[in-house]
Design a protein around this nucleic acid. Sequence first.
DNA 1: TCAGAAGAATTAACTGAATAGTTAAACTTG
DNA 2: CAAGTTTAACTATTCAGTTAATTCTTCTGA
Lengths: 234, 234
Amino acid sequence: MTKAKDPPKRRPAAAKSAKTSRTANAIPAADTETRILDAARVVFTRAGTAGARMQDIAREAGVNQALLHYYFRSKQALADRVFREAVTTLLAALPGVIRQDAPLEELFRSFVRTYIDTVRKTPFLPAYMAAEAHHNPERVVAVIESITGTDPHDKSPQLLRKVQALIDSRVAAGEMRPIRAEHLMVNTMSLLAFPFVARSILGSVYAMDDAAFDRFLDERRDELPRFLLNAMRP
Amino acid sequence: MTKAKDPPKRRPAAAKSAKTSRTANAIPAADTETRILDAARVVFTRAGTAGARMQDIAREAGVNQALLHYYFRSKQALADRVFREAVTTLLAALPGVIRQDAPLEELFRSFVRTYIDTVRKTPFLPAYMAAEAHHNPERVVAVIESITGTDPHDKSPQLLRKVQALIDSRVAAGEMRPIRAEHLMVNTMSLLAFPFVARSILGSVYAMDDAAFDRFLDERRDELPRFLLNAMRP
DNA sequence: TCAGAAGAATTAACTGAATAGTTAAACTTG
DNA sequence: CAAGTTTAACTATTCAGTTAATTCTTCTGA
């Protein structure tokens, strides 16, 4: 495809005195690479990898199109970079370690709060990731593998067994009713992620603007732990 | 954009005797228009409108690329047709009339069964629709409006109030705990739709193949009504 | 302290490939 | 043969990526 030379990229010279003219765009002139990446994030998350145009990213960043290639070599490379960041952010929205002895109520609340509070800052990421994952499933495995350093194919059954063991001990203690780990995990993720995935639909069909969606999320921070806890009562 | 002539399309002559040669493709030769539409459905739902190529659709249908334009005028028109069908199918997956006096258990069960049993026949539709809706939100309103004949902006608050009234009466009867209609509806749709939207992720990360997903759905038909009913206990 | 060289950053203009869409002729069938 | 259908070959456009020249920044040494 593209030539196999080593990357032409060098670290841009440290500082940059006040930009004199920024093409019809009075942005405080951040680092160019950063501006491109920000622009790419906007355009890719809105239009998807296939729907995005390099020209649109360049315009959004207020730079020449050649600069995108100068800094990121190819559309694919730029898209991969943005996608990888998105996955990283979304993985970070799940509490990494959970206190196994904490009351159920606290567990659910911690999950809900961490997720909602993280993702609401970039509310279109889940829809973007879902779309990309649908159109290009292999990419997800590759990216997760390169982020976590482990093949999710190996790790996920392990996680599943661990969660199942946790559930089983709670069930034995009479704290919750039995359920398969798959379902509890999928149910939790469904309740957390779907409203974000369907954000556009809520917006266009239910006329839910940003403010209304924000209120909706505020309510949800309280509603969801209650909902989940109730659902799991013995 | 494209020229504004009236559509060149005519109804294809009724029948068609045995196709002699079908380009490296021994399909029983259905109606050409149908074959194209089937192919378009496959390609568009997999790759999305932006990612799909007319050439791929032509190949999948086993016809010349010019035929796609002969029957459907433009890529956009074909894409719209496929998207409209998808929305129609997904709307049909929601029980239209609900028996308002039925026990809660039956209501939830009917919702879950209708949705799962309908959508499992075309398990990639929700992911496709979510992706398209995300990349092109206005399209959803337009299509729903043209299908139902009413602006969803007008109809959705009405539905919301109706559901809220139903909830309130059940709450008064001591059958369920109070909840805002928005949340109950979003929660239900989340639990139903998300596993389909995340189908690719379940497949690639959790190595869930078609058979495993089918079993998962079978379990879910029983698990979800229980989960929802429990969650709503007073 | 400043000329000017070296290299990094940026641009306008271009190229080539992919791809949607068109046309005109050939084929099929009632 | 006539209307509808199908095809091969073509055109036009869009778009990722390249090139070569230009401007900006930093550094060197007299």
